[in-house]
Nucleic acid binder design. Structure first.
Length: 247
DNA sequence: ACCACAACCTGGCCGC
DNA sequence: TGCGGCCAGGTTGTGG
């Protein structure tokens, strides 16, 4: 947005004065009070390369920078999106809180889950509830919290929401420390692989033993997304009242 | 307002 | 080798 020809004409000569992030969006603040917002979706990548770099087959756009380098946008599946706008809030205004924001609270999460009857797994992927959680870390957080992914969001007790809140933060901190999760195409900004995949507890581990109890991990489609969980550490009913051990 | 699901794309992998 | 089916770090439009 806008259409490619207009985008190209309007971005020419722009100066980047600041870089930021909001949820899964990258924000390039431009000198003339405009913003370039980038969402990489599934397979998008940004690479800073020398001016004479060869074009990778999936390169969809190239930005020529005035320091002699180029910024290449690669995207195998073409799901990525660029927004060149004056008002970034039009794009990111409805996003939920940043999970690592020190001001975010379990009470806020509890309130946001209250009227949702959908599976907690699906609600965690709703960017209006929490900004930035995706399929990997939603499953990982639910495991750490010991909550079954099909539990209705509104059915979680205060205690469970508290555990989920802490688990989301813990998993995201671990993943950031490890530079993300590289399974197929994800790369870090410098082009190297992340290492969270070695730390993974349930995601894409169907049939393998639970790291905590040894029970085989299950895979189930929830809200159209593959969901991985331990049926023993994440019981469907909360009747036992047992507090799962974190790991 | 909420919810479930198809659609958007390309490519890798598996079984036949 | 080829083909069909399924899978994939996400979001949005549609219909109920």
């Amino acid at each position: 947005m806008p259409d490619p020809a207009t985008f190209q004409a309007q971005i020419r000569g722009a100066r980047v004065v600041n870089l930021a992030r909001r949820g899964k969006f990258l924000l390039f603040q431009l000198s003339d009070d405009r913003h370039l917002l980038v969402h990489l979706r599934m397979t998008g990548q940004l690479h800073v390369l020398p001016a004479n770099a060869t074009l990778h087959p999936h390169t969809r756009a190239v930005f020529y920078l005035d320091n002699g380098t180029t910024l290449h946008f690669r995207d195998q599946r073409k799901f990525g999106r660029f927004y060149l706008v004056r008002e970034p809030e039009l794009v990111v205004g409805k996003l939920g809180p940043e999970p690592l924001d020190p001001k975010w609270t379990p009470e806020d999460l509890h309130r946001r889950l209250q009227q949702r009857r959908a599976a907690i797994k699906s609600v965690l992927l709703d960017q209006k509830v929490i900004a930035g959680l995706g399929n990997i870390y939603a499953d990982e957080a639910l495991f750490v919290a010991g909550i079954h992914p099909l539990r209705t969001a509104a059915s979680l007790s205060e205690k469970e929401v508290q555990r989920l809140f802490e688990s989301i933060r813990q998993v995201l901190r671990e993943a950031i420390d490890r530079g993300g999760t590289t399974i197929q195409t994800f790369v870090r900004p410098a082009g190297s692989a992340g290492t969270y995949q070695h730390r993974r507890r349930v995601y894409r581990r169907a049939g393998q033993p639970c790291v905590r109890c040894g029970t085989p991990i299950l895979r189930q489609r929830i809200g159209g997304r593959s969901t991985y969980f331990c049926p023993r550490c994440q019981p469907a009913d909360n009747s036992s009242g047992e507090t799962p051990v974190r790991r």
